[in-house]
Nucleic acid binder design. Structure first.
Length: 338
DNA sequence: CGGTTTTGACCGGCGC
DNA sequence: GCGCCGGTCAAAACCG
């Protein structure tokens, strides 16, 4: 009984957490950078303010894009688009139900360097880990080794031996939340948990339960700021979100109550970033993202798009004064700095 | 009963 | 070659 209630409480928390601040990072954003973020933010409980604290160090960056995320997409589509594509160029456009991405190849000439992080030595911490299984799940279908080794090894799945594994595109974001596993609209099955070195918090591994969808995600809590949850998506969903059959990205007219309104996008190590170290996009209500055809996060974190009407969330916003989150961060930021 | 979580064991990559 | 570590597997337990 208690456990069930716990479970439900967890679910509720999930909902709540959707209202919390979220920072998006892409593939090669080193964990250490996360810490940099969080360190600047006091460990205040989940309040929208914290995200701004977290953004502070990057204000000077954002100010390059003082336009804000939207503006970037709006007026500077090339900029926004290419950056995003940069991040995901490793894979063909996701099979998103809504809109196909423009061909990355055409937009992003130089792709590989995007993954390098000149700024941070241990940028590998988050992304250099082995991703074999990611390909595994997607490409293993017709592989010869599968049968062979399946018999040879009693339990462990065959990993490709000689094959150099390709990296799945990754997409990480930080969320200030009390719950680790954020409900993003997809169904996940936990398949592992590991203790994280130098961190009291374990890392959980999830896999999308949809057949044929090899998307995985890792969830871990920042050791420096326990209120921050780092979620890393790996791979691309080959199906629309279960809760929104049509994958209604961009259908958030009433974005007002959308929780992740203050989400800020930090794009990773693109050539651009070599100058700036990091990008942060203060997104206005996420929806704009989607209305613009150029933005199509491969993982389409559906909580950005679809959790909007989560009953409880909407009311929680009001109840807990989280409406402030809804105010485009851009607006809020504009005032003090400049 | 089917799906999910837990958890210990195992594997491969990498650094020394 | 060895040990560490991140990631995965899969049986058992748990849950609805």
């Amino acid at each position: 009984m208690e456990k069930r209630e716990d479970h439900h409480r967890q679910m509720m928390k999930n909902e709540i957490s959707m209202a919390n601040s979220t920072t998006f990072i892409t593939e090669e954003m080193p964990i250490t950078s996360f810490s940099a973020f969080s360190s600047s933010s006091s460990t205040t409980p989940t309040t929208s303010a914290s995200i701004f604290d977290m953004m502070m160090p990057y204000d000077h960056i954002a100010d390059k894009a003082s336009l804000g995320f939207m503006d970037l997409l709006d007026g500077n589509q090339d900029f926004g688009t290419s950056l995003l594509l940069d991040c995901f160029q490793l894979q063909p456009p996701p099979i998103l139900p809504h809109q196909p991405l423009p061909s990355p190849a055409s937009t992003v000439p130089e792709s590989s360097e995007v993954l390098n992080t000149p700024a941070t030595p241990n940028s590998s911490s988050i992304s250099s880990s082995s991703n074999e299984a990611g390909n595994d799940s997607q490409a293993k279908a017709g592989d010869e080794e599968e049968q062979d080794q399946e018999k040879n090894k009693k339990q462990l799945k065959p990993k490709k031996k000689n094959q150099k594994r390709q990296r799945e595109p990754r997409f990480a974001f930080m969320t200030k939340s009390e719950v680790d596993h954020l409900d993003d609209g997809y169904r996940w099955r936990k398949y592992g948990q590991k203790a994280v070195k130098n961190s009291p918090f374990p890392r959980s591994y999830y896999r999308c339960t949809s057949a044929g969808c090899g998307v995985k995600k890792r969830v871990e809590r920042s050791s420096e700021d326990p209120t921050i949850v780092v979620t890393t998506y790996e791979g691309q969903h080959t199906h629309p979100s279960p809760i929104t059959p049509r994958g209604s990205i961009g259908l958030l007219p009433d974005s007002g109550c959308f929780g992740a309104a203050t989400s800020s996008f930090v794009l990773p190590q693109s050539h651009y970033q070599q100058q700036q170290n990091a990008y942060m996009y203060s997104s206005s209500p996420s929806l704009n993202i989607s209305t613009n055809s150029s933005f199509n996060p491969p993982f389409s974190p559906s909580f950005l798009q679809e959790r909007r009407l989560s009953h409880s969330s909407a009311s929680l916003f009001r109840d807990h004064g989280l409406l402030q989150d809804i105010v485009p961060s851009q607006m809020r930021k504009e005032t003090p700095e400049e």
